[in-house]
């Protein structure tokens, strides 16, 4: 109850993984762990959909719909009928 963050758009295809370790390096929330023959999805719920792992995975073993998790930007985009959401977080997120 009251948890909107239990699932997200992160998808991982371990059969494509060549265990380069990039995903566990770039992820700021420890979603992937480097221990094992392939990368391990250790904490998928913590994913904030930043897209760093997808961008840096050499074999496209990771898919995620990345974007800015920013309510005001989304509400504004919804009102303006924009598809793309850009965050106005000039220096407000560090």
């Amino acid at each position: 109850m009251f948890n909107s963050y239990l699932s997200n758009t992160l998808e991982y295809y371990p059969e494509l993984c060549i265990n380069c370790g990039m995903c566990s390096t770039v992820c700021p929330h420890g979603v992937f762990g480097p221990d094992g023959k392939v990368a391990q999805l250790v904490n998928p719920k913590a994913c904030m959909e930043c897209g760093a792992c997808q961008l840096n995975c050499p074999t496209k073993a990771i898919k995620v719909e990345s974007g800015v998790g920013c309510a005001s930007a989304m509400m504004l985009a919804a009102v303006k009928g924009q598809k793309e959401v850009t965050c106005g977080c000039d220096g407000s997120c560090s």
């Binding site: 994913c47 800015v68 998790g69 959401v85």
Partner: peptide
């Protein structure tokens, strides 16, 4: 928008 862990899907 300022938090460092909320995902688009969740928001």
């Amino acid at each position: 928008g300022s938090s460092t862990f909320t995902s688009v899907t969740g928001v």
